[in-house]
Every structure is written in C-alpha cells, then in structure tokens.
Simulated scan of single mutants.
Amino acid sequence: MTVNPSRKHLVLLGAGRAHLQVLKGLARQRTGDMNVTLVAPHPYYIESAMLPGYVAGDYTLEDIRVPLDGLVEASGAGFAPAHVHSLDPVGRRVQLSTGDALPYDVLSIDTEPAVDRDETEALMPGARRNALFTRPLENFVQLWPQLQALARDRALQVAVIGSGLQGAELAMAAAHALAAPHGSRITLLAGDAPLLHDQPAALQRRVLARLRALNITVLQDHCASLDGRALQLASGASLVCDAPILAAGAGAPAWLRQSGVQADEAGEPVVNERLQSESHRQVFVVPPGAPAEVGAALDANLRTAIGGGAFRKAPADLSRLKVVSCGDGHAIAVWGPLGLEGREVWNWKDRRDRRQLAALFTP
C-alpha cells in the first residue's frame, strides 16, 4: 500500500452509504491535498434496505449487491481489502488483518453493524455453531440460498431471533420464501417487550396483523441456548427449531469499543453534531440508522478536517415516514397516524430503493 507522505491521509473504514457518497464527491471534485484509502472486508456494497426483498425472492443478489471498483477508481482513492483488527486513536493508526499498520490524519468510520460472536455465544451457548447470523451481510446472502434449498426438500421449523423492525421484516420475508412446497413455519422470538413497542401505533398494528396473516408465531421470550434441534427459552420452554436466524445484537464492532474512543453505556461512539468523536476530534463516525442525507455533510466535514474551513451540522433522522417490507410484493407505509399497505406501496418502495441505490454509483 503506497501513500504519499507529503499529503494528508484520509482513511475511510467501511463501505457504508455515507462513505459511498464521500467517494462520489471525490469523483466529482478531486482534491490534491490528501490521499484517500477505503478499507472494507469485501469489494461490494450491499443495500440493507433491500435485504428483506432478497430473502423473499423479490430481488436477486445482483440487484442488491454492487461492486465498489468503479466508484473507487473514479474517486482516485486506494482500496484495502481487509478487516480492522484494532484502532489506536492516540497514535492515529489502524491495524489491519493484512498485517499493515495504516496511519491517518483524519479517520472516518461507516461500518456495517457487527455482532460480537464471543459475547453472543456467552449469552446463547450454541449460537456460534448452530445459528445463521444475518451479520455480516456478505456472509448471510451467500448462506441464505442453502436454507432455501433445505426448505425445498422438507418442511422446516425456522426461528427468527430478534426484536424490532428488522426481525419482523426478516420473519415475514422468510415466511413467504420458505412456505412452498412443504409449508415451513416461522416463529419470531421477540424478547420481553411487546413487539414494535417503540414504533408508531399505526405501524405496530399493521405489522402485527400482517404477521398473523402469514401464520407467524410471535413469542415474547429470549433464547437461552441452541443445540441444533431446539431452542431453550428463558421461560424454561423448548422450541423445536431446524434453522435459527439471528437478527439481533448488532452494534459497534469490538475493535471500536476497545479503542478508547468515548462511548455511551451501550458501547456506541459518542459524536457531536459534526459527526466527530467527542474524545478524538480527528475521528468521524456515522451512527447506525443515520439518514441518507448525512453523506453530503460528512463529505464536507472530512474536507474541512483535512484542509480547513467551516464544519457543517449533520442532519438528524427526523423523518416520520416508516416503510416496512412484508414479502410477496406487499409493503406497509405509515406517516404518523396515517397508513397504507399493499402491492402499490411495495411498488413505490421498490422504485425508490432501486433509484437510491443507482444514484450512489452514478458520478
């Protein structure tokens, strides 16, 4: 890896949506005062908003996974295909799985939410060996067709472990994809709190009704362990399960939590309105669930951090529109107390998602 030492070095960790917008900005307007290196474990971007559609069979893998090489080349950035082993924010250095120690002047982190498998195994013994993890996405999209193939041979008992919209969307997509030809059944293991208790009442009501229509069993319980044949639940009950799908527990990667960058009680980095770490101002972090518009602010602020100028305030996610994919070409859209659902909502969501994905890779 060659870096010109006479110019400042911007390192982008992760190929998230905001970083793609930064690369797109570089492709439009190169800057001569910095080197840029993108670090990502795979040379692809996977659109997570379209993942339930892929699971349901509405999309092929090529529809939701786009190679990075064209955008990286157009931006003039270097690409390091590697995992991050550790981050030293004091020494301004990133240790990579390749053995390289990558120095930086400014660092930006926009990585996929990660699941700590050691921690998960401690909470749910047997998960590492028996569960199908949805993170990282690159692994999941490769393994999902194998589960579909099993369902074509016999009926499966599938458990989706995860609360929130992600778990509900995945359960509905799996119910559609695995029903034929043998009638596989889906259970959503949603934890203690009522499912979608933190969502608008109109959305909660419609999603619960859709889950019932798809004959998905919702259990308010936790998985205590897995043995490949059944899940042992915290309540003491046992749930027969051929295929547990783990859609919970994703957050900041271990290397970031262990770096010394200031974090909150949940282990997530604390950032200011400019997306800078509160403890290390040369480190920028894109929070999970940040709105699509955050990429433009990040691009401007990284250039400011390198070359000087005024920082911009990153937009907060204030959208009241919630859109949920339900499988079988069906979707729900809710705006406050108002809601719509059906195939037309799915068609609108499909057009929007395809358009936004294409725009990320259009110079």
Rank of each mutant, 00 (worst) to 15 (best):
A27G: 03
H83E: 14
T362V: 07
Y45H: 15
D110F: 02
C241Y: 03
L23W: 09
A177M: 07
A173F: 00
T120Y: 04
A174M: 14
G342M: 06
W255A: 00
D118C: 07
T98E: 03
A171V: 06
K24D: 02
I306V: 15
A292M: 04
V66Q: 14
P5Y: 11
A209G: 11
A297Q: 01
P125V: 07
S325H: 09
E344C: 07
G289K: 04
F311K: 03
V323E: 04
L170S: 08
A80S: 13
P363S: 03
R351A: 10
G342N: 12
P43E: 12
R352Q: 13
R303I: 01
P136D: 04
L214N: 12
R212N: 13
T120V: 12
M1K: 11
P363A: 02
A201R: 13
L298W: 00
S48A: 10
A155S: 14
F311E: 07
F133I: 10
R257M: 12
Q276T: 08
P287V: 08
H197Q: 12
A174K: 07
R65M: 13
E293R: 08
R205L: 09
D227E: 06
F133V: 11
D192R: 15
P363K: 01
G236F: 03
R312L: 09
A292Q: 06
A149M: 03
W348V: 14
R343G: 06
P113I: 10
P67C: 10
F361D: 05
G260S: 05
V294A: 02
L170G: 05
Y104L: 11
G32Q: 11
V72S: 09
T37L: 01
E265W: 03
G76T: 11
P269H: 04
E119Y: 02
P291F: 01
I64G: 00
A254K: 13
S279Y: 09
M34F: 14
G167R: 01
P5L: 08
T134G: 02
R135V: 04
A149N: 07
A234M: 11
V324Y: 00
A316T: 15
P244V: 12
H42N: 14
A180H: 13
C326R: 01
Q199K: 12
D242T: 06
S163G: 02
S277M: 03
K313W: 02
P136I: 01
R212H: 13
A127D: 08
P200W: 07
A250I: 00
L196R: 06
A248Y: 07
V106R: 01
L150T: 08
N301K: 02
S163Q: 04
I332E: 05
L256R: 05
L10A: 07
L203V: 06
L256D: 05
H330C: 07
A247G: 09
D100K: 12
G260A: 01
A168W: 06
N130H: 15
F361E: 00
S163M: 02
L26Q: 02
A175Y: 06
R312T: 04
A74G: 09
V106F: 03
A80L: 15
V271R: 00
V334Q: 06
R65L: 00
T2N: 11
S75Y: 11
